[in-house]
Write a protein that binds this DNA or RNA. Structure first.
Length: 533
DNA sequence: CGTAACGTGGTGAGG
DNA sequence: TCCTCACCACGT
């Protein structure tokens, strides 16, 4: 094993560009180390590092040079690293750095080099279908507006909607644009107006389709090279420790099919003719003789919440033989109804309440999710928290602890400093409290998911008969390309490693709840079929 | 005066 | 009112 200290993973790894070499290198990246010490402020150059960590004992690295391209600053790197390493150790971050972040670098670089196979023709077909539908909607819009106008222009639309059709008279209050105090043509206004005239609905539809086409069809096509889409993984972009993907962002490809036909009012749903839909993930495919394998941590954030809460009811819901649909069980506990009488509506409602509590989403947002008055949403949250007292106690205790130290720590000791926890400004303080809870859950989930990537990759590499290639990470889901004949063996391996929480947490923490993984397989990303547990 | 370059707010995809 | 990234229109 070679060791190398560097700044910014990309140049170092891509100059080498030989996977075998990369795999043998242990890259102690100062940028990542600095990000662990303070995820809010990521240095791009050694000069930035110097500014963030004024280190007198280190010799001057010179002016703001792009370190990546300067071999002459290698000595300074060593000096910086020795100081930063001490800080990592002081703050209990060294283990996370060495055991997770550093080991992840070669995994990510190999993923970047590899890319994911796509069928360009499928993209082009989607493009054509969207193009036609957009023109259709546009034409229809001009018809109901009574004249042609520039549909993309907010000022012109404003003129048509409010000066000509006088639609603002239907509303008691109209939102004004923040900049010029003009009548807004924003989503919410159009939504409120759509019952009075067909134009707003058509504009909404038009904007949606244009967005889908430009972002997920045209946008992705421009990134195709040799039939592959290669993203850039950024290890230091997210304060919570999550990975992020850019150019293109493969973590935000629509999962649900996009509707092409008019979304008629749902009331008369008698035999709806076949809905025309577009599955945006369909062009993503595996190579000949291979399949795509996806492994999904089931409700990982909720399980982490249960672990922290020590709430007996919550924890027990995850234990036992049948804990796959946790939300049905939570609904049952919450509403005191037998499992078999729980409707899908209630289940969905519970899900939203749970995530609202977890992410710190307020009453207003929850009210809009559930389509109920605000005060009722407040009662719903209150009732839920009373049913699971552990959640409330944990939140309180956690915030009190954080206020003493000024920072939060995740399961693997990732940390985020939140100066506003003790702010005199009430708004800022409340915000910091939500961020603290959110960091604990989201950051811990990120720890587990990153660790899973490292461990599964190691395990696959240790089995020389297996050739699965990790393609994409979607926060709580990993996607591989696997030779068809190795599918069975790979499925077992992946599930075994990902559900082994002791291994994932480096034996540092014992989780109070099991973590389960669901698998699905398919020849395209759009059409994966889930496998029985 | 027209255009390029950049920043911002709104929206929406993912988790 | 958690955390990301991409696109658009619009203002400077």
């Amino acid at each position: 094993m070679y060791m190398c200290v560097c700044m910014c993973m990309y140049p170092c790894l891509f100059i080498l560009n030989l996977m075998i070499v990369i795999k043998q290198w242990c890259v102690h990246d100062i940028k990542i180390a600095a990000w662990l010490l303070n995820p809010e402020k990521v240095p791009e150059t050694l000069a930035d590092v110097k500014q963030i960590f004024p280190l007198d004992q280190v010799t001057d690295p010179g002016d703001a040079c792009k370190v990546s391209s300067k071999i002459s600053s290698l000595e300074n790197l060593e000096n910086f690293y020795s100081v930063i390493k001490d800080q990592l150790k002081e703050q209990n971050l060294f283990s996370l750095f060495i055991n997770v972040e550093v080991k992840l670098i070669p995994v990510l670089s190999v993923m970047e080099l590899r890319g994911i196979k796509v069928n360009k023709n499928t993209f082009l077909e989607e493009k054509k279908i969207l193009q036609e539908r957009i023109q259709q909607v546009e034409k229809e819009a001009y018809k109901v507006a009574g004249r042609k106008f520039s549909i993309n222009s907010h000022p012109q639309l404003r003129q048509v909607l409010f000066d000509e059709l006088k639609l603002d008279s239907k509303l008691q209050k109209i939102t004004l644009t923040t900049v010029n105090n003009l009548k807004s043509t924003c989503e919410a206004v159009l939504e409120a107006l759509k019952d009075y005239h067909p134009l707003p609905q058509l504009i909404l539809e038009y904007r949606h389709l244009v967005k889908v086409k430009s972002t997920y069809v045209d946008g992705l096509i421009t990134h195709i090279q040799n039939g592959l889409l290669c993203t850039t993984w950024d290890q230091t972009a997210a304060v919570t420790g999550r990975l992020s993907s850019a150019n293109p962002n493969l973590q935000a490809i629509p999962k649900l099919p996009v509707c092409l036909t008019k979304s008629e009012n749902q009331s008369g749903t008698a035999k709806r003719p076949e809905q025309k839909v577009l599955r945006i993930r369909d062009p993503f495919i595996s190579q000949e003789g291979w399949s795509l394998l996806a492994a999904d941590f089931q409700q990982i954030e909720l399980r982490i919440l249960a672990h922290f809460c020590h709430d007996e009811k919550l924890i027990n819901a995850f234990r036992g033989p049948n804990h796959s649909d946790i939300f049905i069980q939570l609904t049952s506990l919450w509403l005191k109804k037998p499992l078999e009488y729980i409707t899908s509506v209630e289940r969905e409602k519970t899900k939203r309440v749970v995530y609202s509590v977890m992410y710190g989403v307020g009453k207003v947002r929850l009210a809009s999710y559930l389509s109920i008055p605000e005060n009722e949403a407040g009662t719903v949250i209150e009732n839920f928290l009373n049913r699971f007292p552990g959640i409330k106690q944990f939140t309180k205790k956690c915030i009190t602890e954080c206020k003493k130290t000024g920072y939060v720590c995740s399961l693997l000791k990732r940390r985020r400093v939140l100066p506003h926890l003790n702010s005199m400004n009430h708004v800022l303080q409340m915000q910091a409290e939500r961020q603290a809870i959110n960091f604990l859950i989201q950051g811990s989930a990120a720890d587990i998911c990153k660790s899973a990537m490292v461990e599964v990759e190691n395990e696959i590499a240790a089995h020389t008969n297996l050739h699965a290639r990790l393609l994409v990470q979607l926060h709580d889901e990993l996607l591989w390309e696997v030779p068809d004949i190795e599918l069975e063996a790979t499925k077992c391996l992946v599930k075994k490693v990902m559900e082994d929480t002791g291994r994932l947490l480096n034996q540092q923490v014992i989780l109070e709840v099991p973590i389960t993984v669901s698998l699905s397989v398919g020849k395209t990303w759009g059409g994966m079929t889930s496998l029985p547990p």
